[in-house]
Design a protein around this nucleic acid. Structure first.
Lengths: 209, 209, 209, 209
DNA sequence: AATGAATGAGTTTTCATTCAT
DNA sequence: TATGAATGAAAACTCATTCAT
């Protein structure tokens, strides 16, 4: 039997009062991660910023890692909710318009809280949330794959799994890198979207004229 | 005059003996980073593993960050040496073959020491080496851009800077992700190389055929 | 008026329901002491194991020490009840048979719950129950002394107080040590009883042949 | 392979300077144990009283338990040195005089630092030093058994192991109890020694007259 | 130059206890 | 009466860094 991992919350907050406490803790963790980075995010500072005693913190989370994991999970849930929405929206769109929408969405999503996104991306391996993240990524891939499936005869690619991997990884990397490390590109976001769309849909579609 | 940043080595190790010490320290740091991660890499352990006294460590590096920075820099220099070589090699190749060679190289490069690559990738922001890394990346982009320039009339892309960004970022992301998180893909590396090559060169080249 | 010591229970549990709660608390304390030792016996865990809220715990006992004291007292009361019974039983027996019975009893008593006995023995000084324990011991001594008194003319010892101390302390030590630290001796408990009996009654009785 | 227990010192103090530090730490631990008891003996207080930084404490001892273990070991070594001396001294003495000497010694030994003796006795199980203590006890038993062996034909007891256990345990218990819990008895220590000697040698010797 | 003993601020974490509901 | 959320002092322990030798 596997030992319960140390990154899981300790107990559910049942009463309204404790719900507030837990939320404050996760919020504070996110804010400190963003403002000061992982190393500076001590449990005492987190508790402090949450306006909660250090004891309460440990009543709900067994460790600093667990808190970071909670932030990661919450963030991922939010992202995935949007991803699902977008993928539903594009279901009926032709490939090029669908891709354009996806790229635009990816930029938007990264722009919501780029600093948080970045810290979390860096800390994920450390906190052992890779599996969860992978699971979500897989869900994203799968949903996108479903879309490709539904358009199969408009595509020139054969291996849809591989295609989904290639598209998802590239879109994520390009938008991630642009938002975090090449902000100057976002001054003309349209150009970036345009180019990325050409890039991806050129790959997916038959040598359309 | 800007204050000397704290991540620079303290003094050039001129004599042979010091050279050995410095190397041992950087090696030890790399090994511990790989084996145990950044948090567990204490200066005492590093000195220990390097077979050097903690005092000597601080004679050459003013801080833990400086050591990690040294590892990053060394690693980057090694990578860049290879990048330059490869880009020289492909200078005379037609686009598709050039891209294929680049992709194969990227996989190889990631495979040399994926764990180190990963830790460093995670730690770079922390250690403030981003600028250096960016500088190198820029050099890589520039070299690749030069190649594109030389093939300009075979390309359908207009903005070469953008194209270089798109290609470099995607190749890096796809190989990075495959090597680190989707090892099963490497069982048939040829397929991956093939697909990526189609992906990239399809983007670069005019609707060839 | 002396301030009420903090190791006394807070209020008599008059109603049946409270009685149950109090018992559950003392039971839980005993079990945790045995299973995990004094340091691990936190009031939260005790309350938990007793199936009682931490608030209720403090309604009945003002401190952790008070709980341990309750366990000690209960245990001592149980022991003393048996001691009284045994000493009544032996009242009419000749010395050697009386001693044999006492020794057998001491082994039995230690064997009931040796782990609890041991933890309590270790914790008694800490919890300031020494006086109580001493009082009970004194009662034991006194009862045994009464027995000796009643057999005075069969004894060669003069100072009955001293004799009671010598006998009681030795019997306790020998059986305690055998049960807790030399369990191999209990494989042939008869031999141990026999030898101890010879030891003690040889001391008490005149050079009986 | 058994994991190195956490109660062993971390490194030998080689230089004279560190030897002093280590001694100061063990001394301070002993003093605080005596003055305030185990619970109050925090590593910070120990370091404080030793006039040493908390960091130095952890350079030599990995935990509080290790420090207490060091005190126990040192104390035991001192005791055993005396025990060996005494048992050499009595080698040539006839039983009664030998026993008298042993009893007197036991009282002396307990009187040197009864409070320390008591705390240590209580903490030994906790700190996992039982084996060491048992080993020493066994050495004591063995030495005493050797003495009995050498006087075998003057004894009425048959099982010398059992006899050694009975004598050693009783002498220890009687003197321990007298010194720690019945100090009034020591006002006339001669009487106690006399009685105990009669008790023990009466058991060992044939119904001498 | 090299050594390694010493430092102590700062971190995580526990747990007895209180008190609003 | 019962609950359990909240508290915060205090404990164990780490580790980057200094400095006397």
């Amino acid at each position: 039997m596997a030992r319960k991992p140390l990154t899981n919350p300790r107990k559910q907050a049942s009463q309204a009062r404790s719900r507030v406490t837990v939320d404050a803790l996760v919020d504070a963790t996110a804010r400190i991660l963003v403002r000061d980075g992982y190393d500076k995010a001590s449990t005492n500072r987190i508790a402090d910023m949450a306006g909660v005693s250090i004891g309460s913190l440990y009543q709900y989370y067994p460790s600093k890692e667990a808190l970071v994991a909670a932030v990661i999970d919450r963030h991922n849930r939010q992202i995935m909710r949007r991803v699902r929405t977008v993928l539903t929206e594009i279901a009926s769109l032709p490939i090029e318009r669908a891709v354009r929408r996806l790229v635009a969405f990816a930029i938007e999503a990264h722009r919501i809280d780029p600093r948080l996104h970045r810290v979390l991306a860096e800390q994920i391996p450390r906190v052992g949330r890779l599996e969860n993240v992978e699971a979500l990524n897989r869900e994203g891939y799968a949903l996108f794959r479903d879309y490709l499936e539904s358009r199969r005869d408009e595509l020139r690619v054969r291996d849809l799994d591989l295609a989904a991997f290639v598209c998802a990884t590239s879109i994520e990397a390009l938008t991630h890198s642009a938002v975090l490390y090449h902000t100057e590109m976002l001054r003309d976001a349209e150009a970036l979207i345009e180019e990325t769309t050409r890039f991806i849909s050129g790959y997916l579609q038959p040598t359309s004229v």
